[in-house]
Design a protein around this nucleic acid. Structure first.
Lengths: 230, 230
DNA sequence: TGTGGTCATATTGTCAACAATCTAAGCCTT
DNA sequence: AAGGCTTAGATTGTTGACAATATGACCACA
């Protein structure tokens, strides 16, 4: 069992917050593997926690879908099937479509300029990777994150960030990029950003949905081809 | 402070489950009012719980958006603004649209027949209320619940049931019915069910989205007219 | 060898006590 | 009267011990 991310002292308000962060990071990094059964006592030893805050963190991670808890029997890291992954993409499609529409209606000029600048940075990145990768850093530098935030629909942000994104991140690095896909994805991002800049909500929604549907179709065909197993 | 729902002994697996159920019911019934600050010790006295399971229940309710917790400062029942309510309806529109589409693709003939029977029962109910109300019991007898379940998209069910429906139920009984609206809503339900029976996912999605948009528009105009304050 | 029963141990759920933090009341100054 | 400071008490967060439940090892029997 490799040693997990080292917990360093931080400015969080509660130990439960710490616990949540440690565990989530360990899950996303695969240090706690999908399907793996994990025990409270072991986790407490490993992350230097006591059971109270740990249990609270487990509850939060459960509500995010990252863990599956069974009363009296313990906790497993979630493991989702190919079909379930595709269902997540269906949900993502409609929700991010809505986010793009609302972003088009609500983002101001400064924010739109920042979005374009973000894409300029991404374009440089793709070029440096010789078109072989389009890796987006998490958080503020992620295109999708910026659109969802730009929707200014707090509940939508919360649901996507809380319920979907972390779950999807368990799997994202599994999909090596199809040839030419980074440039294409970047172009699609550009089109979406342009629709948003024009305030054309309907078009932004349409383009975002198409973009995510393309990703879903890609995953679906690769699952069928047996290129990927989950 | 009126006495809350009486906790009766049930067959749940943990006291945390009990606590969750008691509290959720009290919130939905308005016994714990929107915006109200609630204290752990008081809740323990009231529901005959200890703080461990109670805190776990509070965490779950927080993740469902029914409570707002602030570290070291306590818990409040959520209170959402008119704008926030309308945002929820936007989300509901796209997600239930997806649910209707997937239900059209996946529900079998028996399930579709049950859906029609459900609507027959609703029609009788509306007639008995002389067109003045279209009250749907929660759970299995709720049209929307049946559609979402019929989508067979587990994550979608979970997100709608876990993140949206209970929140919306805090507010539903606030909206007295516009004249003629029950019959209209029932007719819209019928159309949706017919599209599902035909397996026409696109039409089912369109009709469901229109149905929910109508509800949102109704709420929006009444908020603007000052008919309703939250 | 396979199946069922028993029991010890490990693990999860709960409890009560202690620690940490916040809030409101009281007092003093302007 | 209003504002600021201090402190006691209330409340929330954590801890460790005990209770409840599940699991796996071992044994007996067919």
């Amino acid at each position: 069992m490799p040693e997990a991310s080292s917990p360093t002292q931080t400015s969080s308000q509660t130990r439960a917050d710490d616990a949540f962060r440690f565990l989530q990071a360990a899950i996303i990094k695969g240090e706690l593997a999908p399907g793996e059964k994990i025990g409270e006592v072991e986790l407490c030893d490993r992350f230097n926690l006591t059971r109270g805050p740990l249990r609270e963190a487990l509850g939060r991670l459960e509500s995010r879908g990252l863990l599956v808890r069974k009363p009296h029997a313990g906790v497993r890291v979630v493991s989702i099937s190919g079909d379930e992954l595709l269902e997540l993409y269906h949900i993502r499609e409609v929700m991010e479509g809505l986010a793009a529409r609302q972003a088009a209606e609500r983002m101001n000029q400064k924010e739109v300029a920042e979005l374009h600048a973000l894409l300029d940075g991404h374009e440089k990145m793709v070029a440096e990777a010789h078109g072989l990768a389009y890796f987006q850093a998490e958080g503020d530098y992620d295109f999708h994150f910026c659109i969802v935030t730009g929707s200014q629909n707090q509940k939508l942000v919360q649901m996507l960030m809380g319920d979907l994104y972390y779950l999807l991140r368990l799997y994202r690095c599994r999909f090596s990029t199809a040839p030419g896909r980074p440039q294409k994805a970047l172009k699609e991002h550009r089109h979406i950003a342009e629709a948003i800049a024009l305030g054309d909500g309907e078009l932004a929604q349409f383009l975002m949905q198409r973009h995510i549907r393309a990703a879903r179709n890609n995953i679906e065909s690769r699952l069928k081809d047996g290129d990927i197993t989950l």
